[in-house]
Each structure stands twice: as C-alpha cells, then as structure tokens.
Design a protein around this nucleic acid. Structure first.
Lengths: 248, 248
DNA sequence: TGTACATCAGTGAACGCGCGTTCACTGATGTAC
DNA sequence: TGTACATCAGTGAACGCGCGTTCACTGATGTAC
C-alpha cells in the first residue's frame, strides 16, 4: 500500500540477498577472467556460466543481459584503475606536485600493463552496439579528479607565492577553445588558468595515447621491446609532459 | 622444368588475371563497407559474399581466410590514410615547416573522422587472435615518414642558420632512452638531435591519442560536441604540440 | 577445323560450432496462520 | 507443532541465428595437338 513503511528486512531475506551479491561478484570475476584471456569481443554469458558450473540460463537470474554484464565489467575496471592510482598517489608527499603527477601516470600505466584487456575495454575501440549508461561516469572520473587536484594545488601554490604568471603557462586561450571546454570547466576551480587546464587535459590525453600505443602494438619496431627500455621511455616522455604543463 | 624461362602471359590468362584482380578489389570494397557499418568484430566473409551476391564458398577462390581479408583491409586503410596525408601536405610550401606539420595532423584527423572504423581497425584495440604480417609495415610508416621529413628539414634549416641550439630543444637524453630508441633511430638522419626526435615521436603519439579520445568517446562531457568546438580544440592542442617540438 | 584435355570461377550442401535469450519446470527454503 | 502458500535459485530443452571452412560438383573457357 502506498505510504506504508517498508518492513525491516528479515534475517533470511538478508541471507538470500548476501548470497545473491556473492554470486553476482563471482559472475563479474569470471567475466573479468574471460576478458583477460579472450578480450571483450569474445566475452559471452555462456562462457561465464560454464566457468561457474552453472547452466547458461541460470545467469539470467543475476544479470539481465550481456550488455548489463559489460557495464558491470566497465565500472569494475574504472574502479580498479581509480583505486590503483589513488593508492599510489596517496603515498607521495602532498607538496611534491611533480612527484604526484609522475606517480599517477606511472600507476595508470602499470595498471594498464597488468590488465591489458580491461584497459582496452575502457580506453580501446568501443564495443559495437554497446552504449555506456551514466553509471560509468563517476568511476571514469577518478583519475582525472586526481590530476585536477594537482593542477589546483599547483596554482594555489604559485599564486600564494606571487609567481603564477611566470611558472604556470599563461598564454591567451581562444574564445572558441574556452567555449569548447565549457562542459568541464565548471568542475575545475576558477583560479586554475584556462591555459593550465588545457595543458592538464592534454597531459591526460597524452598518457592514454602513450599507453595505447604501447599496448596496441604501435611501438613495435620503434621502441625496444625490453621492459627496461619501455619504462625508461615512459619516464622520459612523462617528464617532458610534466614540464610542458608547468609542473615542477 | 627448373631453369626454363617463364612463358609470356597469354592474352586470355591476362584477361583472367585482370578479372580476378577486379573481384578481389570488389571483395575488399565490400569488406570496407561492412567495416564502416558494423565494425571490425562483425566483419565476416559470409556477409561480404552476400553483399556481392556470391555464395560464401566462392570468396575462398580469392581470399584464403578471414584473416587474409583483414590484412588486405588493414593495408588498404594505412594506404588510404597515408595518401590523404601526403596529398594534403604536398600542397603546403616546402619551407613552411609548421604549416606542413599542422596540415599532416589535420589531414590525419580528418581522415579518421571520415573513416572511424578504419581508424579503429588500425589504431584501436587489436583484433583478438589476429597477428599483422610484415606486409603492413611499409604502409603503416607513410605518415611517420612525412613527420620525420619535417624534423629533418627543421634541423637542416636551423643548422644552416647556425641557431640549432636555441630553437630546437636540446636537453640531454638519457642513455637508457637513447637505447630504447635504437630500433628506429637508424631510419632518421643523424643530424636530427635525439631530443628533437623524441619530441617528434611524442607528437605522433599525442596526435593518435587525441584522435582516439575524440573518436572513442573519451571527450564526452569534457569537450563540447559541436564540430566547430572540436575543430577549435584540435587546432589549439596541435599548435601547442608543435611549439613543444620546436616547430615554428 | 576438330577433338581431348586443362584451368578455374562459381555452386550448393554440409560439418560442427557457439551465441543470446526464453520458457515451463523442479525443488529447496522461508513465511503466515 | 503442522500445513498451505510464496519465493526464488537453478535446470534442461529449445528457438533461431550466424559463423568459418571443406568438398565434390558443374560448366564455361582456353590450349595443344
């Protein structure tokens, strides 16, 4: 009846709910493992069911469709990446802004190298016919939020020392470009100059470009294959990007 | 018999060969159209056959397997991109190096926006289970070759004016990084400084990162969706990258 | 000019496969009286 | 404490689909003598 108080959950209902959540967790885990070995295109509910020893139709008790499983996996991937970056960044001294930036970049790359198919799922070519629901927006923003924090503090820092004009790039940003950035500008403190924000966004673009190039094979025959060489190159490229943004 | 001279091709054999090449062309075109509407994962020999009004087994007279068709499509995509960039770049005055750079970047992006699935095929997540044969290396290098030419002339230019040290970035490049770049360094004239070459490579990485971000939807809610806004942003970001490389 | 043979594009049926999703069902467990 | 009913996880068969690839074949065309 409308207006009625929802009754307290009984102990057994609660137990059922917990069991249910556990099974959903197992399904997502199985999907993740499938992703890791076969890639997103090969992901199938039937294979997930097989891995869990269920009959394929049983999975539908927990997940409405293949697309819904895909969404769960995407959210999980963003969260896993976000957590990795946040944890790494939290260990750096707060006033070491360039250390924080380098650590975020490094953590993102390390996560990508360890979870290449999950990386491809969220940053590779879109899965045809799949449209991400809004549920993914929050988790997707976790790393960008860390970067914006660095930019914000970078500016606060410089401003308080009265040297903003010299250290932070401060070219004029076209009106057209300022308009292009309008959607996201609201999420960034006003005292961060347009040019700095633009460059921060470019740094994020660069980081994903570099990782994609490495992971998707576009650095074959270009950069030596040994992990040492790749690490060295990554450190060098990100150092230059940090300087480009004005993070010191 | 070994040692025998291969006989001249008869007129009819020639006719057959030409017809054959035409059909292969039609198959590749059909594959391309399928790619454009469905994406690489959905590409199938059966669908190609259907589109051409052939029975599916007939396609095997021309193409050994699905993977071989994929290779043909990849080569075609690289060539189409390379040609677009070369043609656009050729129209710019030779001594306008920054114009050449901006034009290459712009041509690559325009090609990508017009051929999003072909772009995804060559620069997106790799197709699972497919390994590109060496046939693709040459076509894949066409755009990078244009960029290297700009770097080369940029250096020659500055050197001849005796101002290389000031205009071209000339930081020290780590030994480890120089080693990492060894595979490709041989393809670049010696007088191009390591730092400049490194930055040129970064510009290419950036360009693909920016296009991928735009095409794969990672600028949703970040940059305004109108074509005008996106164009303005692209111009702005590439101008900054050109300055970063030292192209003026 | 005529005939036996070779070449090869295209046919049609079949193989074995995996997929997403639906549906009527069984059977265990919990709930209300 | 006992009984009728509700809930819901899991079953098993089935639907209709598309895929890559193989194979024995037909029939048109060209070639050699």
């Amino acid at each position: 009846m409308p207006g009625e108080v929802t009754p307290l959950e009984s102990a057994s209902r609660r137990a059922r709910r917990l069991a249910r959540e556990e099974v959903i967790g197992a399904i997502v885990e199985a999907g993740r493992r499938q992703l890791a070995t076969e890639g997103a295109a090969a992901l199938s509910l039937r294979a997930v069911a097989r891995e869990l020893g269920m009959v394929s139709s049983a999975v539908y008790r927990y997940v409405a469709s293949r697309d819904e499983l895909l969404t769960l996996l995407i959210v999980r991937a963003y969260d896993s990446l976000g957590e990795a970056a946040e944890k790494a960044e939290a260990r750096v001294a707060r006033d070491d802004l360039s250390g924080r930036f380098a650590t975020i970049a490094h953590a993102v790359r390390r996560w990508a190298l360890r979870n290449p198919h999950e990386y491809a799922l969220i940053f590779g070519s879109p899965v045809p016919g799949y449209a991400a629901p809004t549920t993914t927006i929050g988790p997707a923003a976790r790393v960008p939020v860390l970067l914006v924090a660095v930019l914000t503090e970078l500016t606060a820092d410089r401003v308080s020392q009265g040297q903003a004009r010299r250290v932070v790039p401060d070219e004029a940003v076209d009106l057209a470009v300022r308009r292009a950035l309008a959607p996201v500008r609201a999420a960034v403190p006003e005292h961060v100059p347009d040019e700095l924000f633009l460059r921060g966004l470019m740094a994020w673009t660069y980081l994903l470009g570099a990782i994609s190039a490495e992971l998707f094979g576009h650095r074959h025959n270009v950069i030596a294959e040994s992990p040492g060489a790749r690490d060295a190159f990554h450190t060098a490229e990100m150092a230059r990007i940090a300087a480009f943004v004005g993070i010191r």
